[in-house]
Design a protein around this nucleic acid. Structure first.
Length: 552
RNA sequence: GCGCCAGUAGCUCAGCCGGAUAGAGCAACGGCCUUCUAAGCCGUAGGCCAGAGGUUCGAAUCCUCUCUGGCGUACCA
């Protein structure tokens, strides 16, 4: 990676100047805001001048003069307060295009084994009580893309969906299906308080009647309940999985809460806790002193009636995560669950686990812009869109892109009309269009009798316009961007990078004609540049789970 | 009350482990198609980075306080 190479060269420069070299991490190579300040810049002289008992500008000049001799750079110069501005040589820029073509879909991939982490990424994890909704969809898009990016950078990421198929809500689900079943069979119906009434309930009831006919009503009450439970859980989960597949989202693991409970893990947690000094009885219930470990207050773990609260199975689930030997556990949660993180962390700490590796990403809420009105998506208010509706209405590509345009901890306003528009206002089409445009160039070239296989690297010397260099500079930054995204989990930077890359490309395309049979070498050089751009666009889109169309 | 997140251009937002002139995209206004996809390009305009203090050579960025909005704060999951 370019940025690493530059860092190393700075490090060496200190040696050459007989100065004690700073730590590698202290050398920050940044992207200046203005292009008059170079391709990259460095503020090490400002930061370190004091410790060398010299003036920043003097130090900057010394460093710059050693680096300026290096052919890797076109120019390295020290400026006013003590910045060092770096310009990459034309040869290096041309070589980047060769690298992109050589590595192809692996351009940007990092196989750094030494920093590789084993990561568990859990997301969506909805109750199997109905269709997935748009809040789940934001989590699905974010988690899936983050996993793809981290994997691409050499981490070993597993994605996981935790199925909450046990507990209160499931009992209500079973009753709701039974009500629906009775209604379908025209039998007496007793409504369930707080029961579920979504489309999946009706479909499952339908399915049961179709498969079992009247026999379901003749069997014992216990057997009937067992059957309904199986149909309901399997049926709804199957539908949720289908929606996720339509949304291009894949999970490595599906973990069932019921299965964990069947293994006795809830009892295990209770006995582990009993061995600590942090549980006590009060008001007929059993409490754990999470407040001693950063929680706002202590929590009940066992209610007066002898049943446990949700904290216990959740601790059990997280213990199972720890036992699988990950270096990092990431829970991606919805906005309504952030109150849950402190008690979970406190609980894990009490059980003796290292909570530094347990991280949470809270996705903020989703609002839909319909017409010119903002509609808050809320399950409670019953105005929530399902994921399937979103896919039908807007499509997977546009939806995923829109979900990933904002940083995770900002609320997201989703403009449906804009997402559906097929014009430059819509950033998804803007990016995909750049990719498609390049494809049509290839056709054009062969029509003109220019053969791409005749390309030779020395033709790249024909590139000499600013629009061409700008495009290469943009391409060059793709790998280091991915490193930054992976480290900071800021997936949204990839969407804005792609918009920027598309824009840089469109500018080049408008200004510099690619195909011209009178200048075959130039045509091939530019085509080579275009195809490098196409590779990077495709790689970026693929990491976002979005298609890269060849024609539009 | 307490906690978390946010407050940057008319709108939606980047930038936030401090750096040099605060950036995009929409919307507005004015241009560009007899030549590779105009689903495109170019230009103009638009800002006391919510407010007040502090830290420093230097603050949108870090600290404190205030104001505004969202969410959370269960013996629900």
């Amino acid at each position: 990676m370019i940025i690493e190479t530059i860092k190393q060269k700075f490090y060496n420069s200190f040696k050459e100047l007989d100065l004690e070299a700073p730590l590698m991490d202290e050398i920050e190579i940044e992207h200046p805001k203005h292009k008059e300040y170079g391709d990259y810049s460095c503020n090490i002289a400002l930061k370190k001048a004091k410790s060398y008992k010299t003036k920043p500008l003097k130090l900057a000049k010394d460093i710059a003069s050693t680096l300026d001799k290096d052919n890797f750079f076109a120019k390295v110069e020290a400026i006013k307060p003590g910045f060092i501005n770096i310009y990459i040589s034309k040869k290096e820029l041309r070589d980047i295009l060769l690298t992109i073509h050589e590595t192809g879909e692996d351009f940007g991939r990092n196989t750094q084994s030494e920093n590789s982490q084993k990561v568990l990424l859990e997301f969506v994890s909805a109750n199997p009580t109905g269709p997935l909704n748009v809040v789940n969809a934001r989590a699905a898009a974010f988690g899936d893309s983050l996993a793809k990016i981290m994997n691409f950078l050499g981490h070993e990421v597993q994605t996981e969906y935790y199925i909450n198929d046990a507990g209160n809500q499931i009992d209500i689900l079973i009753e709701s299906v039974e009500v629906e079943l009775n209604r379908l069979a025209e039998m007496p119906v007793k409504e369930v308080e707080g029961g579920y009434k979504n489309q999946y309930i009706r479909e499952v009831a339908d399915e049961i009647l179709e498969e079992e006919h009247q026999s379901i009503f003749r069997t014992s009450e216990a057997n009937k309940e067992k059957k309904i439970r199986k149909y309901a859980l399997d049926g709804i989960l199957k539908r949720q999985k289908e929606s996720l597949l339509d949304f291009n989202v894949f999970f490595d693991n599906w973990i069932s809460e019921q299965a964990l409970r069947d293994k006795g893990s809830v009892e295990d947690v209770l006995s582990y806790l009993a061995e600590t000094d942090y549980i006590y009885e009060k008001d007929d219930a059993m409490w754990v002193s999470t407040s001693k470990f950063g929680d706002d207050k202590d929590r009940v773990i066992m209610k007066g009636d002898g049943t446990t609260t949700y904290l216990i199975p959740d601790l059990a689930y997280h213990i199972s995560k720890y036992k699988r030997g990950f270096n990092q556990l990431i829970d991606i949660l919805g906005p309504d669950h952030h109150g849950h993180t402190k008690k979970l962390q406190a609980g894990m700490k009490i059980l003796g686990y290292d909570i530094d590796i347990l991280n949470f990403i809270i996705l903020q809420q989703v609002n839909f812009i319909i017409g010119d009105k903002k509609v808050k998506m809320s399950k409670r208010e019953g105005n929530i869109f399902t994921l399937d509706q979103l896919i039908d209405e807007v499509g997977t590509d546009a939806s995923r892109f829109f979900f990933l345009m904002r940083k995770s901890n900002s609320p997201l306003d989703f403009d449906i009309e804009l997402a559906k528009k097929q014009s430059s206002e819509n950033p998804v089409y803007y990016v995909q269009y750049a990719h498609a445009r390049i494809n049509s160039l290839e056709k054009k070239v062969s029509k003109e009798g220019i053969k791409f296989k005749n390309f030779k690297p020395e033709y790249l010397k024909r590139l000499r316009y600013e629009e061409e260099w700008n495009l290469i500079r943009k391409l060059m930054k793709f790998p280091e961007l991915l490193v930054h995204i992976s480290a900071t989990q800021s997936v949204h930077l990839l969407t804005s990078y792609l918009i920027g890359l598309a824009s840089t490309y469109h500018t080049f395309y408008q200004k510099r004609r690619v195909v011209n049979k009178r200048y075959k070498e130039l045509s091939l050089a530019r085509l080579y540049l275009c195809k490098a751009t196409q590779i990077v666009l495709a790689n970026g889109l693929r990491l976002l789970g979005i298609s890269a169309p060849k024609e539009m």
